[in-house]
Amino acid sequence: MSAPLSAGGVPRLARGVRLRHDEARGQWVLLAPERVFQPDPVGVEILRKVDGVRPLSLIVDELASAFSVDRARVAADVGAFLAGLVEKGLIEFGGSGEAGP
């Protein structure tokens, strides 16, 4: 199931998955059926760019530029993070140019 993610693919939250700020605990949470995930601050930055419109390559470009980090390293980190969420059923990938849900 862990095929490499295509740079042109468009990640989106799987249906039934929501990202919201948890006021009571002062953190961002990813909510899914019967599950609560608490991504670390880097994960939150990635997830806030997952909108079903931006392709993976653009997300990497934007994060590399925003944090002035080597693009290849960002690509590896973002790819690993999203692949983990795909395996958990929290993120789905649409093809290049797909407009999301």
Binding site: M1, E34, E87, G89
Partner: peptide, 8 residues
């Protein structure tokens, strides 16, 4: 079925 169906 990892990635297709979550089994709890």
């Amino acid at each position: 079925l990892k990635g297709r169906l979550t089994i709890d």
